[in-house]
């Protein structure tokens, strides 16, 4: 079994995340950069699936700036066997169409049985990449899974939807995405960190993947304007003196909020 996990570097959600008002793109310099938590959970899920099926391998693929190597090394330290880092100036500010095309090309080189992604990234927030990838690869997608298992050549899991849950199954190869209901990622052990330094890390550029960076084959989405919303000002804060609940209710009534 060969499992590919897609991970992403994102601006730290604990920090101040900015959009450049000139380009409308994420201001990467202006924010702390970290591995997206959901991607690390996907690595964890892949390692669990790997442990359940002897002779399996896990490869991590990441498209991002050179700094994303830190996130990739961490995944290797957690236990992934190899990694691919796709970094290229031509991919800066790539839209979903280009991102999916590049990642699909990188995945194809691996011929995996299963591709695992996070359900939604914290910066793009789209929750569409898994489905786009599945369409490129012409395989089924099972997404937003809060549980995932593999038995023989069938992957199955529980999909969480807006109105309930549904059990899904598909023959491999397939693309699956997981939610944060799956277990927290493990901490890399010291041994893992040392071993990670010797694990294969392949670096690829856009050209090697035949990427259409100019948008010649398919239209792209472009930002046409960006504006910051004015920051919110704090209002009144009172300390409860035994009448706090009443005053709160009176505020709501006075402001016609009830």
């Amino acid at each position: 079994m060969h499992i590919v996990v897609l991970i992403k570097e994102v601006p730290d959600t604990y920090g101040d995340r900015r959009i450049s008002l000139e380009t409308g793109l994420v201001d990467r310099e202006g924010s702390e950069r970290v591995a997206d938590e959901i991607g690390e959970r996907a690595v964890e899920a892949a390692l669990t699936l790997q442990a359940a099926s002897e002779g399996s391998t896990v490869t991590v693929i990441c498209m991002g700036p050179a700094s994303a190597e830190t996130a990739v090394r961490k995944a290797l330290a957690m236990g992934a066997d190899s990694a691919v880092l796709i970094s290229d100036d031509g991919l800066v500010g790539a839209d979903l169409t280009l991102t999916a095309e590049v990642l699909a090309a990188a995945v194809r080189r691996e011929s995996p049985d299963l591709v695992l992604t996070g359900n939604v990234s914290t910066d793009g927030g789209g929750g569409v990449l898994g489905a786009m990838l599945a369409e490129h690869l012409e395989v089924p997608h099972l997404t937003n899974l809060s549980e995932i298992e593999i038995a023989g050549d069938v992957v199955s899991g529980t999909r969480m939807t807006e109105s309930g849950t549904v059990r899904l199954a598909a023959e491999l190869p397939a693309v699956a995405s997981i939610t944060d209901a799956l277990p927290d990622p493990r901490f890399p052990a010291f041994k893992g960190i040392m071993a990670a330094k010797k694990k294969p890390l392949t670096r690829l550029g856009a050209e090697e993947l035949g990427a259409d960076t100019e948008g010649a084959r398919a239209p792209r989405s472009i930002v046409i304007s960006a504006a910051a919303r004015p920051p919110r000002a704090a209002g009144i804060t009172i300390t409860d003196d035994g009448e706090g609940g009443r005053r709160l209710a009176e505020y709501l009534i006075a402001e016609k909020l009830v």
């Binding site: 704090a234 804060t237 009172i238 409860d240 009176e250 009534i253």
Partner: peptide
């Protein structure tokens, strides 16, 4: 509290029942 229009500092277990009662 930095983004609240109206904030109450205190124990929610006394404040909320009192607010419900008043409403």
């Amino acid at each position: 509290f930095a983004i609240a229009d109206f904030g109450v500092v205190g124990d929610l277990f006394t404040i909320v029942p009192q607010a419900i009662e008043t409403l």
